[in-house]
């Protein structure tokens, strides 16, 4: 291109720069789209109750009135937070224990119909949760589980497990089998090899699964709403839906938004803490 004029060169450069900026623009667009509702939630939460239908991008007058309303004794919100924490943590721990052992077996043992089992596990997660409500309600009424934690934990567990098992199976599968074999030659029982070699290496996968499960269980609504009718057993999602305004026609948007912010904070903190543990490439270097 010896005959290229300065003009042509300039357009090429401009086109090149546009190409460089396009992905950044795309990412910014997606982030904006995802975060806009959260932004609106936070902003609305900090408005005075009287301004709750205001459309200004920032509150005219900042106020924590809504947050105070959330924790008024009548709402039982503190108790609901505790309930949510119990249900979500128990679900997460159980999912990890059951999911890890199931996934390890599926990844390592050779038995007939292994892929069928894996497909069936995934298939169970395709039932719409709402279709299970009526039979579950009937069942739990019969065995006296209404208003208990297990009535919320067990269904959450069954929703979370398929994804957890699938995730962890894929994670274990990409771990070279020679690692356990080396450990066994080094004198480990299969159990020791699993605990001392595989579990530390699987930590990133397990933390990812834990976060996803916790979020799923924390945000669960429909089961918690159906299986519990006592105020001191309800979870935060249910508690928020039952906030009332001054009158029947008064929607307490501000209070709900403030509660939403409070409920989201533990998730954000959790993800930030665990993110540090999810170090990519932890397994690299042991082989070859």
């Amino acid at each position: 291109m010896t005959t290229a004029t300065g003009d042509e060169r300039r357009t090429t450069r401009r086109r090149f720069e546009a190409k460089k900026w396009l992905p950044i623009l795309g990412v910014a667009g997606i982030v904006l789209y995802c975060l806009a509702p959260f932004y609106w939630m936070v902003v609305t939460a900090f408005r005075r109750p009287a301004d709750q239908y205001d459309l200004s991008p920032l509150p005219r007058t900042w106020s924590v009135e809504n947050f105070r309303a959330v924790f008024e004794p009548g709402t039982g919100f503190g108790r609901a937070l505790l309930n949510s924490l119990i249900v979500a943590s128990t679900t997460t721990i159980l999912t990890l224990v059951i999911g890890t052992s199931t996934a390890y077996a599926l990844a390592r043992l050779a038995f007939r119909g292994k892929n069928l089992v894996l497909s069936l596990i995934i298939a169970t997660s395709m039932f719409p949760g709402i279709s299970l409500i009526v039979p579950l309600l009937r069942l739990f009424t019969d065995i006296g589980w209404i208003n208990t934690y297990q009535a919320m934990i067990l269904p959450s567990l069954s929703f979370a497990l398929p994804l957890a098992v699938w995730n962890l199976t894929m994670f274990f599968r990409q771990m070279p089998q020679e690692l356990e074999q080396a450990a066994m030659v080094d004198g480990c029982t299969p159990g020791q090899a699993f605990r001392r070699i595989i579990v530390p290496l699987a930590a990133p996968g397990m933390f990812t699964t834990a976060i996803l499960t916790f979020i799923l269980a924390w945000n669960e609504f429909i089961i918690a709403l159906s299986m519990v009718n006592e105020q001191n057993m309800q979870t935060v999602t249910v508690a928020i839906s039952k906030f009332t305004g001054a009158t029947q026609y008064d929607q307490p948007f501000g209070t709900q938004m403030a509660a939403g912010v409070i409920v989201t904070i533990p998730l954000v903190i959790g993800v930030l803490i665990f993110q540090r543990r999810i170090i990519a490439g932890l397994t690299s270097g042991g082989l070859k």
């Binding site: 070279p176 020679e178 690692l179 074999q181 080396a182 450990a183 066994m184 030659v185 080094d186 004198g187 480990c188 029982t189 070699i197 530390p200 290496l201 932890l282 397994t283 690299s284 270097g285 042991g286 082989l287 070859k288």
Partner: peptide
């Protein structure tokens, strides 16, 4: 016997060092 009871040491083709 299982590997741990044989008193052997093995060098694997891909070394299988414990990465952590």
């Amino acid at each position: 016997l299982s590997p741990k009871d044989r008193d052997i040491a093995m060098v694997f083709q891909n070394y299988a060092l414990y990465p952590h």
